[in-house]
């Protein structure tokens, strides 16, 4: 398995318990969540020492925009746990969530043109 910068070691047996503590027993927002895997999160406040460590870690890493999937990867937390934490931060006005993808049947042509143009330069 690749790609967990700065963190190592496998998830241990206390994993379910650890996740329960982090979310204070709340499960992921079922079904309806304002967060897509690629919603970009940007901090609007500095982390404080009094905050839950995971909240502070998110504020720190989202000094520049970061997707929900990237936050999940860096924190090594399931996305359903991350979205609970993000919902807290959003409710407190501590983060901004940018442009979840429009759930249109088909994306519009201007967007696709932009992606094609960008890929051409890859």
């Amino acid at each position: 398995m690749s790609g967990r910068p700065g963190l190592d070691g496998p998830a241990d047996e206390d994993e379910p318990e650890r996740l329960y503590v982090i979310t204070r027993g709340r499960s992921g927002p079922g079904g309806e969540t304002p967060f897509d895997l690629v919603t970009l999160i940007v901090s609007r406040a500095e982390p404080k020492a009094t905050m839950q460590p995971e909240h502070a870690a998110i504020l720190r890493m989202c000094a520049s925009p970061l997707s929900v999937a990237e936050i999940s990867a860096y924190l090594r937390l399931p996305t359903s746990v991350v979205t609970v934490l993000l919902a807290d931060l959003l409710a407190d006005g501590l983060i901004e969530a940018r442009a979840a993808v429009p759930p249109a049947d088909f994306p519009d042509r201007a967007l696709l043109e932009a992606v094609i143009h960008g890929l051409q330069r890859l």
Binding site: V38, T39, L40, P65, S67, R98, A99, V101, P107, L111
Partner: peptide, 12 residues
């Protein structure tokens, strides 16, 4: 690996 502050929209 940081995105620019201007990153406003992501697709997958």
């Amino acid at each position: 690996d940081r995105l620019p502050a201007t990153a406003a929209k992501a697709v997958k």
